[in-house]
Design a protein around this nucleic acid. Structure first.
Length: 467
RNA sequence: GGCCCGUUCGUCUAUCGGUUAGGACACCUGGUUUUCAACCAGGUAAGAGGGGUUCGACUCCCCUACGGGCUGCCA
């Protein structure tokens, strides 16, 4: 009987949800959900200067769009500052931390002197580390962890393997600032411990930090969680992902019209693999997901593959759900909402539209024929397709549509018949039909369009064009 | 500067000492077709470089190069 898995995502609310953060959250979510565990959310808002409620809201929106639901209340790290300070005091009492009266000026001077001497970087060891409390001045002090100076700290990482850090390369990190506020490194450990986090899955920019955090666990006699430091995501050029690569915020992807299921699938496969599995649902991903499948090298974003993956999910989606997401997309992208009439037409059209669209903008574009109203504006190519001969054919076609059953089976012989009578292939007939029905020459199948808009509208559009 | 991590087709990756190095995206060719797409079939394409270890290395070790991270009273 193993302990239930508890994972967490702990972003800093200093901006939107970064795509890399989204993937980190996704991995934590998949791992927990696939094992009947819990996935918690904690906002690391201890930096009061940079943290904003807007950023927190944006992060929550991003996670929600991605479909990553968390358990329980969102924890504010800042709100727990007293608890953090309490632990710092306990470390003091246990003798695993000490009061350091060195001022920031003194520390800066030490580093400057090191640099001036041309010496290689040296860790700062506070002179108060082993000082007699009797010598303590009546001055503000910070609390520093009394870290081991010899030996090594070993991080058994599920992704990176066994990482050995020599203790002499680490300084005695401050756990409580002289103003009494806790430092991030302490806060994470205390929070993760108090929240019962069993698996810490996060970016590998924290790999080195893990050593110092592990020292805090040891100092408090707490159980060290399972570590899994995952590589960061890079831009297409292999450099760290930044604004110049284009979209870095999760919400930007929503606004670009990628379906969330496709996004999840793509992000899951970015830096993680399970044999040849490429296209899968979230349920399937939960079953397959494991830490051992995570790669150690940073992955690059590939929009082409993202689109392809999204195309599969678009086609897999259920019409009703897809319609909802389409409407959410229109809102997110600031595009006009569907009218009631368009919604009902869309319900019929989705079944064939979704099979070939990869994104919502593409879906909308293919649905142009049901978004327009008479008189239908035509582009240049559509005008070209409606030459005199074609108009004549359309004119002769409309009467036959009045009595026809409105099914593809009934319509097909009528259209092919008209084409044959005029000695042209069906392709030649389809062009003016597209032009008449949609005002453009690139459209879904003419049958699909006719069936969707119905007899009355079809005849009206054809008559308009035949004039 | 020090320490840590990484490097298989253009991209995401499989491989866990012995394979014609597999799959997916992209690309190219052909097919299907009512346009675009989708779809089907086929093809081009990879172990950063150099040393070891071994009967045998993509796989293990070392060096170099390149990329990334950490090195704060930031998170």
């Amino acid at each position: 009987m193993s302990i239930p898995v508890v994972t967490r995502f702990a972003p800093s609310p200093t901006g939107y949800l970064h795509i890399g953060g989204g993937r980190t959250a996704l991995f934590n979510w998949l791992y927990a959900r696939g094992r009947g565990g819990k996935f918690l959310l904690r906002i690391e808002d201890t930096d009061r200067e940079r943290s904003t409620p807007e950023a927190t809201a944006a992060i929550l929106r991003g996670l929600t769009w991605l479909g990553l639901d968390w358990d329980g209340e969102v924890v504010s790290q800042f709100a727990r500052k007293d608890r953090h300070a309490e632990v710092a005091r306990e470390m003091l009492a246990r003798g695993t931390a000490y009061k350091c009266f060195s001022t920031q000026e003194e520390i800066a001077a030490f580093r400057a002197a090191q640099e001036a001497a041309g010496a290689s970087y040296a860790v700062f060891i506070s002179p108060w580390r082993d000082a007699d409390p009797a010598t303590y001045p009546d001055a503000p002090y910070a609390i520093r962890m009394k870290a081991p100076r010899t030996g090594e700290t070993v991080i058994e990482d599920q992704v990176q393997g066994r990482v050995v850090i020599k203790n002499e390369t680490l300084d005695d990190m401050i756990v409580l600032r002289s103003d009494g506020t806790p430092v991030y490194m302490l806060a994470v450990v205390v929070d993760d411990h108090d929240m019962g986090v069993t698996h810490v899955i996060r970016g590998d920019d924290h790999l080195n930090n893990a050593a110092r955090q592990q020292m805090v666990y040891d100092a408090m006699g707490w159980t060290v969680p399972v570590w899994a430091h995952i590589p960061l995501i890079h831009g297409p050029d292999g450099k760290k992902l930044s604004k110049r690569h284009g979209a870095t915020g999760v919400e930007e992807y929503q606004a670009m019209g990628y379906p969330a299921a496709g996004m999840r699938n793509y992000l899951t496969r970015l830096g993680w693999a399970h044999g040849d599995a490429e296209i899968f649902t979230s349920d399937e991903a939960m079953k397959m997901f494991d830490l051992s499948g995570i790669g150690r090298a940073p992955a690059r974003l590939d929009f082409k593959k993202l689109e392809n993956t999204c195309g599969h999910h678009m086609a897999m989606a259920e019409d009703a759900a897809l319609l909802h997401e389409l409407q959410a997309y229109l809102t997110a992208a600031g595009r006009p909402a569907l009218t009631e009439g368009q919604v009902s037409l869309m319900k019929q059209a989705l079944s064939f539209l979704k099979s070939s669209a990869k994104t919502f903008p593409e879906l909308i574009d293919k649905a142009a024929f049901l978004m327009v109203s008479r008189p239908i504006a035509r582009d240049a190519k559509a005008d070209e397709a409606l030459d005199t001969v074609s108009r004549g054919i359309l004119k002769s076609l409309t009467p036959r549509l009045h009595s026809a059953n409105w099914t593809k089976e009934a319509l097909e012989p009528i259209l092919t018949g008209i084409a044959a009578e005029n000695g042209i292939g069906f392709g030649k007939l389809a062009a003016p039909l597209r032009a008449a029905l949609a005002g453009r020459t690139v459209t879904p199948s003419v049958y699909d369009m006719m069936l969707t808009i119905g007899r009355e509208e079809t005849v009206a559009r054809l008559s308009d064009a035949a004039l």
